[in-house]
């Protein structure tokens, strides 16, 4: 009996290892954001949302790997819910799913009437290899340094933060209307050729949705 149990455990471990060894494709557009994965693993999301994330990781190896990493770091809940014995169920409990169904219908109807909101991440206009935080940096002249990024839909505003690599804040701008910013030379006082700017853009869409860019590097010439 115990040898059967041990065999079953070994089989289960092998299945887990093989599942973890699956080839990881690139992340998909519908992958949950890392903070959503973290919230799901640590039990901060509602149960329905957690199940939706688990449903996703069942078919997405990339997110399954990210989930495992979060599970090693986040406090995973371990208290299973307790339900009342069936004989003690209250008749009004039937009303809860009914109200939930009505609420869901209203929510779906309201959602369908909303115009779709784009979720395309903010991208730097130059090739990614030049604008990425860890790739080859882009360059600009200290006297005419213009930072540009991909424009969002009409009505989009932008927040821009510029710092040095040692995190000295050079500029924080809210509510920019155009997808570019010309850095005034006086803000670059004391910076020499070869100095690096780190900058990041938040795109605030008309409906208030915020999409953040990666942190970009630009080297002064």
């Amino acid at each position: 009996m115990s040898s059967n149990h041990a065999q079953g455990t070994r089989d289960s471990d092998r299945l887990s290892a093989a599942f973890a060894a699956s080839e990881r494709a690139a992340p998909r557009a519908d992958c949950p954001q890392p903070d959503e994965l973290w919230a799901a693993v640590s039990g901060e999301l509602a149960a329905g949302s957690r199940r939706a994330v688990v449903r996703h990781i069942a078919e997405c190896r990339s997110c399954a790997a990210d989930w495992r990493l979060a599970a090693q770091l986040a406090p995973v809940p371990s208290a299973a819910p307790v339900t009342a014995p069936s004989g003690q169920r209250k008749p009004w409990r039937l009303a809860v799913p009914a109200f939930a169904l009505v609420f869901a219908c209203v929510a779906v109807f309201a959602h369908l009437r909303r115009p779709p909101s784009p979720t395309v991440p903010v991208a730097y206009r130059t090739p990614a290899s030049q604008g990425s935080p860890h790739g080859q940096p882009a360059r600009c002249a200290a006297v005419d340094c213009v930072l540009r990024w991909t424009a969002g839909p009409r009505g989009t505003r932008y927040r821009l933060r510029i710092t040095t690599p040692d995190l000295r804040v050079l500029a924080v701008l809210d509510d920019l209307e155009s997808p570019q910013y010309s850095v005034p030379p006086e803000q670059l006082t004391g910076m020499t050729a070869g100095s690096v700017l780190l900058w990041q853009v938040d795109r605030v869409d008309a409906d208030g949705q915020v999409v953040s860019s990666a942190t970009f590097k630009t080297t002064l010439e």
Binding site: S12, L15, S16, F19, A20, A40, V41, G43, A47, G48, R50, R51, V54, I57, A58, A64, W67, R68, A71, V76, P77, S78, A79, A80, P81, V82, T83
Partner: peptide, 21 residues
């Protein structure tokens, strides 16, 4: 099964899914 393959214990899986153990 997905949570089991991800290495979670029974209690963790139950809590994450919102079901009884």
């Amino acid at each position: 099964v997905t949570l089991h393959l991800q290495g979670h214990t029974l209690r963790q899986s139950a809590a994450l899914l919102g079901w009884t153990a």
